[in-house]
Each structure stands twice: as C-alpha cells, then as structure tokens.
C-alpha cells in the first residue's frame, strides 16, 4: 500500500477531529481508498471517515490491508509535518509498521518516520442508508459556537427542527438558554447559508459533550450537515470537498 497526499494539513485536521474521541483505530486501505470506522470508548458515538482514492495525488493498493494505529502516536508523528508538506504513507503486506514521508513544497526538506502498528480487534458496524426526517446544513463555525456556548449551561441539548427553524435548547442547573437559526433568505456567501429540508419535524435530545467533540472537525469544512430522524442516531457530516471524502459522526439520542 502506498498513497500520497499533496497537503499534510488534511490528515492533521482529520486526526485533530477524532483523537479525543477514539484512542486506537484501524485505517482500512483498499483500492477504493482509505477509511476508518471507530466507536468512542463509551460506545455512544461512531466516527466514520472516508478518503476516496481519486482524492490522492497517488494511490496504490493491491490488496486490502488494515493499519492498526494508536492515534496519540500518530499525532506525535504528524506534528513533524508542515501543513503544506506532502505526505506519503506506505505499508507492506506484513502490516506491522507504517512509513510516513513528509516533503516540503520546495522539495528541499524530506523527513521520514516509521510507526509501529498494533492489532486492533474492532467490530465494524453496518450503517444503513437512511432517509432522514430532517436535514440541516449550516456553517461549521456556527455549529461550533452553538455547542460551545450551550455546553457551559448544561449536559444535554434539545434539537428541534421545523420548516421555519432549527432550535438548540439547553436546560441546566444555573438556568436555561436557546439558539434558534432560521433558513437564510439572502445568500451572500454560500458558506454562510442555513438550509433546512424537512420530511417531518423532529425534536430530540443529545449529549452536548459529544457534539463538542464533533465540533473539532470544523476546520475541515466550511459547512456541516446534521441529519435527524426520531429514535435514530444523529448524523453529522463534514465533507472534505467534492471528490475527496468525508468525516461523519453518529451520536445515539438520549431517550426520555
């Protein structure tokens, strides 16, 4: 397996977005691309990442291989890569180590690291294609702000979506609060749009702590999409660009 990405910053941001939620994970390499699926230690949420092969500058994978990686160790290695460095990842069939090569844009600096891999026995969950009742698209910076603002008030947030608005409400020890967003009527910048598509209104409760973990993915994408259906996990998606791939989080709802 060998793959090269032009911008190390993408992998660095992906890692920042999952390392506080997941300790160890298998990076699954196949001819289609690089993917990862992992639950947090409490088994309340699930991370699903896909980087399509065509998003890489170079991608070669003859046989599917899983690279078991400790994310804290990978973070240490990726700290050594500049944001604009290219990154080449290599693994042989034995799958006991992975090689990382970082090269500066001017090609005058090359650094090489080797990471010991681990055997991770993780169960892979099947995520069904779902027709969600409500889909909300909003700026990821707005999502991050709401989660951080409401997170100081309480542990859970009630998300209510109607045709007219999406409302985030918190009810905590010191009092309560809410933020309500209406779909944008005037669109100046596509990245500042709030869009709601609705089959039926939803009203669900989620842990704010996890929503705040997911907000660490905001640097990956200008917009985030929240998909909700009653009594079903919330899906939060950050896309890396049209052809590149995505990072999705799933969070089990709190049931009254």
């Amino acid at each position: 397996f060998e793959a090269r990405l032009t911008q190390a910053s993408l992998i660095k941001k992906i890692l920042e977005a999952i390392k506080d939620l997941v300790t160890d994970a298998n990076f699954d390499c196949s001819p289609e691309g690089l993917s990862l699926q992992a639950m947090d230690s409490s088994h309340v949420s699930l991370v699903s990442m896909v980087l399509h092969a065509q998003g890489f500058e170079m991608f070669r994978c003859q046989r599917a291989v899983s690279l078991g990686i400790n994310l804290a160790s990978l973070t240490k290695i990726l700290k050594c890569a500049g944001n604009d460095d290219s990154i080449t990842l290599r693994a042989d069939e034995k799958g006991d180590k992975a090689e990382f090569v970082f090269e500066s844009q001017s090609q005058d600096r090359l650094s090489e690291f080797e990471l010991k891999l681990m055997d991770i026995d993780s169960e892979h969950l099947g995520i069904p294609d779902t027709k969600y009742s409500a889909i909300v698209e909003m700026p990821s910076s707005e999502y991050r702000r709401i989660c951080s603002d409401l997170g100081v008030m309480g542990d859970t947030v009630r998300i209510s979506v109607s045709k007219e608005s999406v409302k985030f409400q918190v009810d905590g020890d010191i009092g309560k609060g809410s933020v309500c967003l209406h779909p944008s009527s005037v669109v100046d910048k596509p990245t500042e749009v709030v869009k709601i598509s609705l089959e039926e209104p939803v009203d669900m409760i989620f842990s704010i702590r996890y929503l705040n973990y997911f907000a660490k993915a905001a640097p990956l994408s200008d917009t985030v999409t929240l998909s909700l259906s009653k009594d079903f996990p919330l899906q939060i998606e950050f896309k890396f660009g049209e052809q590149m791939g995505y990072l999705r989080y799933y969070l089990a709802p709190k049931i009254d």
Binding site: L46, G126, A252
Partner: peptide, 14 residues
C-alpha cells in the same frame, strides 16, 4: 433524566 443508548444498538454488526 434522559437515558443514553449505545450506538451499537442501532447499527448492525457486520
């Protein structure tokens, strides 16, 4: 108090 369900109770094991 709302109770928290596990994510694996929603998605089938492959």
């Amino acid at each position: 108090q709302a109770s928290q369900k596990s994510i694996s109770s929603f998605f089938k094991k492959n």
